[in-house]
Computed example of a mutant assay.
Amino acid sequence: MTSLQARAAATAQAYSPHEHRPLSGYVVAMGTFGALAASLAAAAKLTGHSAPDRPSPADVVLLSIATHKLSRLIAKDSVTSPLRAPFTRYTEPAGAAELNEEVRDSGSSLRHGIGELITCPFCLAVWVATGLTGGLVLAPRLTRLAATALTATAVSDFLQMAYDVAKRKAEGD
């Protein structure tokens, strides 16, 4: 173990002596996010695309709902569980085609940090929003189209749940 690794381990132990926290995995995630954001900015600069002075309210609403849906699809959907499986373990169904999973204790801070990231729709939202926002600058028509599909799915999910509640109420359940 190098002195840098030893210092990182000591810092992690001092930070959370009673529970393992994957601080080095979080550092890698933050660095990767920074690289993603810098890459999007560089791509915009190189291609001559500029960010709008002020995004339209319609784009903000569209990307907000699309971010919500895509974050939940990645973090919770049954169909995307193969993407999470190397980092998580299935625990139980969570209703409406969603799953609860726990992060695998693999001994790797990086693997643990990725597991925490991809099982948390709140954590993923900043990544998804950054990607969609970058897409809005670099490929606005395609991004709006994809965001529209995600937004329509999110609205449909809400309507399906509202219908189910109304049906149960009408049947006296």
Results as ranks from 00 to 15, higher is better:
109 S>E: 12
72 R>G: 07
98 E>N: 14
89 R>P: 02
123 C>P: 07
132 L>Q: 05
109 S>W: 07
52 P>C: 01
76 K>H: 13
59 D>Q: 15
86 P>F: 06
77 D>K: 08
98 E>K: 14
66 A>S: 11
85 A>K: 14
80 T>K: 06
75 A>C: 04
61 V>R: 08
132 L>V: 12
110 L>M: 01
70 L>S: 12
114 I>A: 12
63 L>N: 02
123 C>S: 14
72 R>Q: 15
77 D>M: 02
94 A>T: 08
68 H>I: 06
106 S>E: 11
126 V>R: 11
86 P>T: 12
87 F>Y: 12
99 L>T: 08
116 E>D: 10
119 T>V: 14
94 A>G: 08
135 G>C: 08
70 L>R: 02
85 A>M: 12
81 S>M: 02
62 L>S: 04
131 G>K: 03
79 V>E: 06
103 V>E: 01
83 L>Q: 05
121 P>L: 04
58 A>V: 10
90 Y>L: 15
59 D>K: 04
65 I>E: 01
84 R>Y: 09
103 V>C: 02
107 G>Q: 03
114 I>S: 05
103 V>Y: 00
97 A>P: 00
78 S>C: 07
108 S>T: 06
97 A>E: 09
84 R>Q: 10
125 A>Y: 04
57 P>L: 12
88 T>V: 12
123 C>H: 11
57 P>A: 14
71 S>H: 09
95 G>H: 05
97 A>N: 09
94 A>I: 14
73 L>H: 03
64 S>C: 08
62 L>Q: 11
67 T>S: 08
72 R>A: 11
63 L>C: 04
103 V>Q: 03
89 R>C: 02
87 F>M: 10
120 C>Y: 00
89 R>S: 15
71 S>N: 05
78 S>V: 05
71 S>G: 02
107 G>H: 01
64 S>H: 01
71 S>D: 07
125 A>H: 11
112 H>M: 08
115 G>W: 03
54 R>V: 09
102 E>D: 13
109 S>Q: 09
132 L>T: 10
132 L>M: 04
100 N>S: 13
73 L>N: 09
77 D>H: 11
96 A>G: 00
113 G>C: 07
104 R>A: 10
121 P>K: 02
57 P>W: 13
98 E>A: 11
110 L>F: 13
100 N>F: 13
76 K>T: 13
76 K>L: 07
82 P>A: 04
64 S>G: 12
93 P>K: 09
71 S>K: 01
97 A>V: 06
126 V>K: 11
79 V>Q: 15
114 I>M: 03
73 L>V: 07
135 G>T: 13
120 C>G: 12
108 S>P: 08
116 E>G: 07
81 S>V: 01
74 I>D: 00
97 A>M: 09
106 S>W: 03
55 P>M: 05
106 S>M: 04
125 A>S: 14
129 A>M: 12
119 T>A: 05
94 A>Y: 14
116 E>H: 14
118 I>D: 03
134 G>W: 04
120 C>N: 15
73 L>I: 14
71 S>C: 06
98 E>W: 12
126 V>H: 03
73 L>K: 10
72 R>Y: 13
66 A>C: 06
130 T>G: 13
74 I>T: 00
111 R>Y: 00
104 R>Y: 00
67 T>G: 06
124 L>V: 07
74 I>R: 02
70 L>I: 10
94 A>S: 13
